[in-house]
């Protein structure tokens, strides 16, 4: 494990130095990240200047739910989001070069073209979460769930990226499939799931486990009843959901490598 981590850090550092060769591009992308991230928050602000609750939740509670999901997503995106580029590596033949190195393919793909400007969004997410938490009165006995749910969320988003990456071994044109789950999932989890239809909530609870990123554990932290009346125990199952998703992703990834066809000469 420590060898894998060392390789990852080494590659990330190398790509960061490579990115530093183009400082203007870096500055522009960092600015773009802050602007688009700011828009997400502006949307919530606009909603609450017209109403006092959203799906039965107050502004502070929504900021808490948004902050935790966004923090999970931005950390996963920063560290592993580049896995969705695997289709491009397959088409360009760069995957062949990675396969001849004595290092995990997943680590190499995840670290490839590491984008340090994405750190900006992590900070933004942490800020939203901090503000939400500061204005809420979370009982001390329930705060332990917050790091648990953020870490579970990181694992769930990373696993979804890996699943999407594995699919691209078969269909190189399919990065959008993964993105619909990850970026789509990030947008979905920005709001309390109670604003969506029941079927969607059931789907993201039992099929694609996005409800375990922030919704179910969030209900526990906020001490709210489940609007759908789903079992109370679900609130504690985020780590289990993360583990199952990660296992499925790892199996799919291995199967994908086995089916790799390579390209050209």
């Amino acid at each position: 494990m420590s060898a894998v981590l060392r390789t990852y850090v080494l590659l990330v550092w190398t790509w960061t130095r490579a990115a530093a060769q183009y400082p203007v591009s870096f500055a522009l992308m960092a600015a773009g990240v802050v602007v688009t991230g700011g828009l997400d928050i502006a949307v919530i602000w606009v909603i609450f200047s017209n109403t006092t609750t959203l799906g039965g939740f107050t502004l502070d509670e929504v900021m808490f739910l948004h902050g935790t999901a966004f923090l999970s997503f931005t950390v996963a995106d920063l560290l592993f989001g580049n896995v969705d580029r695997i289709g491009r590596h397959i088409k360009a033949g760069t995957l062949d070069v990675m396969l001849i190195r004595p290092a995990s393919l997943f680590v190499q793909v995840a670290a490839d073209r590491f984008a340090p400007h994405r750190v900006g969004r992590v900070i933004q997410a942490a800020a939203v979460l901090s503000v939400g938490l500061a204005r809420l009165d979370v009982p001390a006995g329930r705060t332990w769930m917050i790091p648990v749910m953020v870490v579970s969320g990181i694992v769930i988003f990373t696993a979804l990226w890996a699943l999407g990456g594995a699919v691209q071994f078969l269909l190189t044109e399919a990065p959008e499939l993964a993105n619909s789950l990850t970026y789509g999932g990030a947008t979905l989890t920005q709001y309390p799931l109670s604003v969506y239809g029941d079927r969607l909530v059931i789907g993201v609870t039992f099929v694609v486990p996005l409800a375990f990123v922030n919704w179910q554990p969030g209900l526990y932290v906020l001490g709210r009843p489940d609007p759908l009346g789903l079992p109370y125990v679900l609130r504690f199952l985020s780590p289990a959901a993360a583990l199952v998703t990660a296992l499925a992703a790892a199996l799919a990834w291995r199967a994908g490598i086995r089916r790799y066809r390579s390209t050209g000469s």
Binding site: T14, A18, Q21, G93, L99, I100
Partner: peptide, 22 residues
């Protein structure tokens, strides 16, 4: 694969294994 990688050297005439910008 990774154990093998340590024991062989591979050169592709039409691909690079080097870091382009460094």
């Amino acid at each position: 694969r990774t154990a093998l990688a340590r024991r062989i050297g591979v050169v592709f005439g039409q691909r690079t294994t080097l870091w382009w910008d460094l």
